[in-house]
């Protein structure tokens, strides 16, 4: 039997592994974000589209730039920067000046990710780092909301979109008045709650008939998109579940104390970016705990802080800060929540 001696390659077990890879997970997150993006463009028109393109490009280019500078293999193709870009745009006001959006994208990757050593090492969710930066740098623009379903939104841009860098963006109030469909102003459900004590109907919140950021639109749509990822086992449902539990619990306490002054738990969950942020941002794997109990505590903490800041803080939407805080607390949470292993011996026994 003169057979060629086979070529044998030595590696250790296990020899089989399961898909998906990181890149596949990230790609699917992008797919899951697409319906939300499309709906956002339908709601807010061309400006929202340009905003998404700008942050995504800015994040991807920044990632590429740092890879080139440090002589590393390009990591753009793992899609994580693209996700950061998309998520970032979805947390910004649709009329946010594009140049500021580009700055946000740059900071997200440069400060939120590369500074820590790239994917896997970031302590915070990069998109939220970018957003926090522009929140501090451009406090006016980031709280300038424009109406959804504005007339002519597919043919003209929101006046502030094309603001010239380092110049004060054009005011949008007058424009908002002229284009808004009946009864709508630029106010978001959360600012209505905070400043006027008006609680928007949950039906409108579910369907996304409200103003706000793209990621603050239809709760149902966001749930569906998240559901897809959970179904594909690419999203840890425990994180959003814990955040929502934390939110409901905390909001319930206040609601029970005084239902006229404080909004219902349902409103708290559906309004603002909570759905989006809890499903897509709090669940950023890298910056959240891995231990089962840790995940639960992290979620509760984020939910709790969100409600507290919303009700008593200076900001209208606060989930982003709550998540950043949770990210910072992650190592501490993890160190106290290591899983109990199989066969742990009772104390005293050796």
């Amino acid at each position: 039997m003169a057979k060629p001696s086979p070529k044998i390659d030595i590696r250790t077990s296990p020899y089989i592994r399961k898909a998906p890879t990181v890149a596949e997970i990230m790609r699917n997150v992008v797919y899951a974000l697409m319906p939300i993006a499309v709906y956002g463009v339908y709601q807010f028109g061309l400006s929202a589209l340009l905003l998404m393109i700008t942050t995504t490009l800015s994040c991807a280019l920044t990632e590429q730039l740092f890879c080139t500078l440090s002589g590393k293999k390009s990591t753009v193709s793992d899609f994580s920067a693209v996700i950061s870009g998309l998520m970032l745009s979805m947390s910004l006001p649709p009329g946010f000046p594009l140049w500021m959006a580009a700055v946000a994208g740059f900071t997200a990757i440069a400060m939120g990710k590369t500074l820590f050593g790239g994917i896997g090492f970031n302590v915070f969710n990069p998109a939220l780092v970018g957003r926090a930066f522009v929140q501090a740098a451009f406090p006016v623009s980031i709280t300038t909301w424009t109406p959804a379903f504005a007339e002519g939104r597919f043919s003209e841009l929101i006046p502030s979109t094309l603001a010239i860098p380092f110049m004060k963006p054009l005011p949008t109030e007058a424009w908002s008045m002229t284009v808004a469909p009946d009864g709508y102003t630029g106010a978001t459900p959360l600012s209505l709650m905070k400043y006027q004590n008006i609680f928007t109907d949950s039906e409108q919140l579910l369907l996304g008939m409200t103003n706000g950021a793209v990621g603050e639109s239809s709760a149902i749509l966001i749930l569906l998109c998240g559901g897809y990822l959970v179904y594909r086992k690419m999203l840890d449902w425990r994180i959003p579940a814990a955040v929502i539990t934390g939110t409901v619990l905390t909001a319930s306490v206040f609601y029970l104390i005084d239902p006229t002054d404080y909004p219902s738990p349902l409103f708290m969950v559906l309004a603002g970016g909570l759905m989006f942020a809890s499903i897509f941002m709090a669940s950023d794997m890298v910056a959240s705990p891995v231990t089962p109990l840790g995940i639960f505590i992290f979620g509760l903490l984020v939910g709790f802080l969100t409600v507290i800041i919303r009700l008593f803080g200076g900001l209208t939407e606060s989930i982003m800060y709550a998540i950043l805080f949770g990210n910072a607390a992650t190592p501490l949470i993890e160190s106290y929540t290591q899983p109990k292993i199989y066969g742990t011996r009772k104390k005293g026994g050796k």
Binding site: R11, Y15, I16, R17, T21, V22, I25, D78, G117, G118, I119, G120, F121, D236, M285, V286, A287, S288, P289, V290, T291, P292, I295, E334, Q338, P339, K340, I341, Y342, G343
Partner: peptide, 27 residues
Amino acid sequence: TKRDDIQPCIKCSMCLQACPINLNPSE
């Protein structure tokens, strides 16, 4: 059996949910 490149741990916690001994393979 070919394996792709090793990437940094993204702390997805899948290994924790797979380990029958309930260890923390990620850490």
